[in-house]
């Protein structure tokens, strides 16, 4: 069970959080202009990486804020957390 450093609250037990899938998938601004394939790409296609993965997390039983996390799925080490709208750390 992870200890997650919520960017708003600080370190909390994983049981307070909810995972929300892959991060940085922006909802298209003009969905009606997309082909079926393009829309399907947004709707269905998600990565499942062994290694560094960018994920959305929600402090559901805390401040209820969504934020992003960089996690190495091969060893579950959390490399960084950052607020929504912020650029992912480059290193």
């Amino acid at each position: 069970m992870f200890v997650i450093n919520c960017p708003y609250c600080g370190e909390r037990e994983q049981s307070e959080f909810k995972a929300g899938g892959e991060a940085h998938i922006v909802r298209p601004k003009q969905p009606t202009e997309l082909s079926d394939d393009q829309w399907a790409e947004y709707l269905f296609m998600r990565k499942n990486i062994k290694g560094i993965q960018y994920e959305r997390w929600n402090h559901a039983h805390g401040c209820r804020k969504w934020f992003n996390m960089v996690r190495d799925t091969s060893n579950d080490k959390i490399k960084a957390v950052y607020k929504m709208g912020e650029e992912p750390p480059t290193e």
Partner: peptide
């Protein structure tokens, strides 16, 4: 939860 998600992430 879903409404909060959209407000915070897609339509801030």
């Amino acid at each position: 939860g879903k409404l909060e998600d959209y407000l915070q992430t897609e339509w801030p």
